[in-house]
C-alpha cells in the first residue's frame, strides 16, 4: 500500500512534557507501522477545547481553529486534517461546519485572519485518527499488521464523549458505538462485552473545577470495567485517559474502592501489537503500569 499522508494537528496536550505526550509517541509508532506520514501543521495554536468559552466569545474561538485550518491549507493543500485529541478534532470540525453554514461568520473570520496575514477557504475534511484507521484502512488491514496478538488481555473500550458525540466515528450509534471493541478484537485481545459505561462522561474539564462530581462519575466508569472482568481500559481521548487514570487513589480513599487499573490509548495497544518495544509504545507514560502490555512488548 502506498504511503498515506495527512495534515496533522497534534494539540497542546501532545507536546513534549505535556499530559498526553505518550499518546503522540505511541501514535507515531503506530503510524510508522501503517506507513502513515503525519505532517504537522506548522505553527498550530490551541483550539480552546470545550472550556474556552468563558473568556473567548464565538468569533475569537472560531478564529483559533480557523487559523489552524488556514495554515494547513497553505502547507498541505491536498491532505485531510487529522487530530488525535478528541477536543482538538471537535473544535476544528465544529469550526469548519459553522463557517460552512454562515457566510457572515465566514467573512468575519477571514477579516480576523487577515490581521495575521492568513485566509481560510474551508474546503478541508477534519478527521479523527480513529476515522483514518477504520475508514482508510479497515479492521482487516489493521489486523494484518499484528505481529504480537494481545492474547489473554480483557479490555474495556471506553469511548467517552467527544470522539462519539456529536459527530461519531464511522456512522456508529452514539449510545453503543462498537469501534473500540472491534479494534480490541482485531489486535487479538478480548473486549468486555456490554460495557455499560462506555459513553459515560468523565466530567471533562470539570474534573478540575468540580472534582467531587466528576470523580463520582469516574468511579462508575472504572467500576463497570471491573464488573466486566477488565484487565485494562482503552480510550481514544486524552482527557478521558487522564481523568480515568490519575484520580484512582483519591477515589479509593473516598469510596473505599481498590481501583488500580491501567488506562491506555488505542495507539498504545496497536504499537505493542505491531511489535514495537515498550519505549516506542510509551508504556513508561503509564502512571498505573500496564504490566501485561510490558510483558508482550519485552518478549
Amino acid at each position: 500500500m502506498a504511503k498515506k499522508e495527512y495534515s496533522f494537528y497534534p494539540g497542546c496536550s501532545s507536546q513534549k512534557g505535556a499530559s498526553s505526550i505518550n499518546y503522540l509517541i505511541s501514535t507515531n509508532s503506530m503510524c510508522e507501522e501503517l506507513d502513515i506520514q503525519l505532517n504537522h501543521i506548522p505553527d498550530w495554536n490551541c483550539c480552546a477545547a470545550s472550556i474556552g468559552y468563558a473568556g473567548g466569545g464565538e468569533l475569537p474561538r472560531l478564529a483559533l481553529s480557523a487559523r489552524n485550518i488556514a495554515l494547513s491549507e497553505q502547507a498541505h493543500p491536498d491532505q485531510d486534517i487529522v487530530a488525535t485529541c478528541a477536543a482538538c478534532w471537535l473544535a476544528t470540525k465544529e469550526t469548519k461546519e459553522r463557517l460552512d453554514e454562515s457566510a457572515d461568520l465566514m467573512a468575519e473570520t477571514n477579516q480576523a485572519l487577515s490581521a495575521a496575514g492568513l485566509e481560510i477557504k474551508n474546503n478541508k475534511e477534519v478527521r479523527h485518527m480513529a476515522e483514518v484507521l477504520i475508514e482508510d484502512f479497515g479492521y482487516e488491514a489493521l489486523g494484518a499488521k499484528v505481529k504480537k496478538p494481545l492474547e489473554g488481555i480483557k479490555i474495556a473500550g471506553y469511548v467517552g464523549c467527544q470522539t462519539n458525540r456529536p459527530f461519531g466515528i464511522d456512522g456508529e450509534s452514539y449510545e453503543n458505538p462498537m469501534y473500540l471493541d472491534k479494534l480490541v478484537e482485531t489486535l487479538g485481545a478480548d473486549p468486555v462485552k456490554n460495557y455499560d459505561k462506555k459513553v459515560q462522561c468523565c466530567g471533562g474539564a470539570l474534573a478540575f473545577s468540580e472534582p467531587e462530581k466528576s470523580q463520582d462519575m469516574i468511579k462508575d466508569i472504572i467500576g463497570a470495567a471491573y464488573d466486566g472482568g477488565a484487565d485494562m481500559i482503552v480510550t481514544p481521548c486524552p482527557v478521558c485517559q487522564m481523568n480515568v487514570e490519575v484520580y484512582q487513589d483519591q477515589i479509593n480513599e473516598k469510596y473505599g474502592t481498590k481501583f488500580n487499573i491501567p488506562v491506555v490509548y488505542y495507539s498504545t495497544l496497536m504499537s505493542v501489537a505491531y511489535g514495537r518495544n515498550a519505549k516506542d509504545s510509551a508504556l513508561n507514560g503509564q502512571i498505573i503500569k500496564a504490566k501485561q502490555l510490558e510483558a508482550i512488548a519485552n518478549k
Binding site: 490551541c46 480552546a48 472550556i51 474556552g52 468563558a54 473568556g55
Partner: peptide
C-alpha cells in the same frame, strides 16, 4: 463559580502564547 474561574484561567492561559501551559 469554580468552572467559570477555571474556564477563564484556561482562556487566559492559551491566549498568552497560543498554546496551553499545563
Amino acid at each position: 463559580q469554580p468552572t467559570q474561574k477555571f474556564a477563564q484561567l484556561f482562556w487566559d492561559n492559551l491566549t498568552k502564547t497560543g498554546r496551553v501551559n499545563e
